[in-house]
Design a binder for these strands. Structure first.
Length: 643
DNA sequence: GTAGGGTTAG
């Protein structure tokens, strides 16, 4: 007969079992199969009646890598008399799940626990219950739980309080959160005068972090920053909350500044810091900083798993290095749907439709089902490469075979795909038949196609709609004006300009960034504010001369002004990306590829010029515009002039 | 047994 006994940690050991067949304890279970075998033995021996054993089983199914909440729940419900520890375990499992139904279930279960009455909740019960309320934004229940906490006398427990504050913060009730916060901070500070109680101090920082997080969630960065500056001490989490808050709300420069200040303050970035700051680096295109992060992870033994890996793949891709993106991707020990989406989107952005399609199929082969985002990636790849039939086939496969509901982003790709291939009527028909209202992005895609194919009739119509939909967006005015200009209709151009002036709409200034030796340099149109402006100017003149000698003629069609040709040619010379290239050429050695990030789309003239410049100066130039990458090399561009 | 994270049409 098998004997069962416990070690000092309450972990069950099966020393009499042949180790090749059965795991010796729950902690040595590697797979769900191991656990099921062990569980079967527990049932057979009746040992499952022991609450500690049952709780260990629940914990394993809930928190190990073999996450199986259904299994945990069934073990729990089979217990005739679960003790408080078991209740706490199942409540925590449900509360921390990402599935919203589980949070509701946790609350129902907690209600059951109270009604049952055999077990009283303890101080470990409430954090989970509060977490469930917070995650599901269930304020009404949250307030009831607050009442119970007072009734049971746990309103002095730091874990309970921090979860209570967090619950109010997540329900956007900052006043309630503040009243608890202020009370606790005063209490804690009072007791800390006598003796520095480390745990209390930590608890204090946690509360500050939660409050900062609350302001960040509400988009109130000023209050968040004030608290951050005021707090008596900051933990790595305090920095992470600020960095991720900035990064997720489009304040990329602030996120990066915070990250750099963090290092000045001698706080070591951790895994979450890296994952939080990487998207900001991607958006700015700060490759050197991105590389530093990658190295830092390696040096500090921070594991590059699927999550950090996805962020790195995206960073390298958005910073212009598709080769490094692929290298990181290939070396990852595990890849999930997001990792695959990141590499597929990377190929799409860089114009390698073939690779995007290959990796899409590799993803399927690896047993990862492509989700809606994967289809956005693949459709955008088809659109950038002009693969109309392939795009159509992916779209219909997604709808008819996979049964995914297309989102507006999918329609956006299709409108772009059809429009740019010159099938303007089909694109317009698709917009009319979409199940949702078209947004400005959809109309902009069609307007771009009208401009490309010089369909002024449709262009005017679409621009009209856009001006109504997004009246303060300069894009539609500029596109319409450019369209008239390309037809030489200067009167109509003047009309659009008048309208813009009347509504005080200004064209977004073109802006380019180039990172040279780790420092980001920003250039605006006609920018002469750089310390090396004189040398840049001389370089621009030289470029201009060499371009002309190589047969280049300025393409002034897209110049916004109705000015004489010479003036327009000069305006073109000072587009921000050209200034950035000039600066790059004088600042770096020939083998150094220039990587430029531009806020708007690259214009046709700059595109033609950069192709020639890559030939004349034997320089690889990679430009990331608002939409995609252009790799200029040996006189041609990776987009094959289709963008 | 407290806080924090990656991909997405133009």
């Amino acid at each position: 007969m098998n004997s069962v006994f416990y070690n000092s940690n309450g972990i069950v050991n099966f020393s009499a079992q042949p180790s090749s067949v059965l795991p010796r304890s729950i902690t040595s279970c590697k797979t769900a199969r191991d656990l099921k075998q062990l569980h079967a033995v527990f049932i057979k021996t009746g040992q499952i009646q022991d609450p500690l054993t049952a709780a260990e089983v629940i914990r394993f199914c809930a928190f190990s890598s073999q996450r199986n909440i259904d299994y945990a729940r069934s073990v729990f419900h089979q217990m005739p008399e679960p003790n408080c520890f078991c209740w706490n375990t199942i409540l925590r499992v449900l509360a921390e799940s990402n599935n919203e139904h589980h949070q509701s279930e946790a609350l129902m279960l907690f209600r059951g626990m109270l009604c049952d009455g055999r077990v009283k909740p303890n101080r470990f019960t409430f954090p989970s219950v509060l977490k469930a309320c917070a995650r599901a934004s269930r304020l009404r229940e949250g307030k009831q739980v607050h009442g119970l906490i007072v009734k049971f006398g746990f309103d002095g427990d730091e874990f309970v309080i921090s979860n209570l504050v967090r619950m109010y913060v997540m329900c956007a009730l900052m006043e309630d959160a503040y009243s608890l916060f202020c009370k606790s901070v005063v209490d804690f500070d009072g007791s800390c005068q006598m003796e520095v109680d480390k745990r209390r101090q930590d608890g204090n920082v946690v509360l500050w972090n939660i409050m900062i997080d609350g302001h960040v969630r509400l988009g109130d960065f000023r209050s968040a920053r004030n608290l951050f500056d005021e707090m008596p001490q900051r933990s790595v989490v305090s920095w992470n909350v600020m960095i991720s808050g900035y990064a997720q709300n489009g304040h990329f420069i602030e996120a990066i500044n915070m990250f750099q200040e963090m290092q000045i303050s001698n706080i070591d970035p951790n895994y979450v810091t890296l994952v939080s700051v990487l998207p900001a680096i991607s958006r700015i295109g700060a490759l050197e900083l991105g590389k530093w992060i990658h190295l830092y992870a390696g040096k500090n033994k921070i594991e590059i798993d699927d999550v950090l890996g996805s962020a790195l793949v995206d960073m390298y891709s958005k910073c212009g290095s598709i080769e490094k993106a692929l290298q990181v991707f290939e070396r990852l020990p595990q890849r999930n749907a997001i990792t695959w989406n990141a590499i597929i989107s990377a190929f799409a952005m860089h114009g390698s439709a073939e690779d995007a399609i290959n990796y899409f199929h590799l993803m399927e082969k690896a047993g990862v089902t492509p989700n809606d985002v994967a289809y956005i990636g693949i459709l955008s790849a088809c659109s950038h490469a002009g693969l109309v039939e392939e795009g159509r086939s992916f779209f219909s496969h997604m709808v008819k075979v996979v049964g995914l509901q297309p989102r507006i982003e999918h329609y956006g790709c299709m409108v772009d795909l059809l429009g740019r291939a010159g099938r303007l009527e089909e694109a317009e028909a698709l917009i009319k038949n979409m199940p949702m209202a078209p947004d400005d992005v959809i109309w902009k895609a069609l307007l771009g196609a009208c401009k490309m194919h010089k369909n002024i009739e449709m262009g005017e119509r679409v621009a009209e709609i856009l001006m109504e939909l997004a009246p303060h967006d300069s894009g539609s005015y500029v596109a319409l004006s450019n369209m008239y200009a390309s037809l030489g209709n200067w009167e109509a151009v003047a009309g659009v300009r008048m309208k813009m002036k009347g509504m005080d709409i200004r064209k977004d200034p073109g802006c380019s960034w180039v990172e040279i030796h780790g420092i980001i340099h920003e250039f605006l149109v006609e920018d002469d504010s750089h310390p090396r402006a004189k040398e840049i100017q001389a370089m621009l003149e030289e470029m201009s001369t060499k371009l002309r000698l190589n047969g280049y003629r300025p393409n002034t069609l897209e110049v916004f002004l109705n000015a004489d040709e010479e003036h327009k040619a000069r305006a073109l010379q000072y587009h921000s990306e050209k200034i950035a290239v000039a600066f790059g050429l004088i600042s770096t050695a020939p083998q150094y590829p220039l990587k430029i990030v531009k806020n708007l789309r690259i214009c046709e003239d700059c595109h033609a010029s950069l192709k020639l410049i890559s030939l004349i100066y034997k320089r690889r130039i990679i430009v990331r515009d608002r939409k995609r990458f252009h790799h200029f090399d040996h006189g041609s561009c990776s987009c094959m002039d289709y963008w």
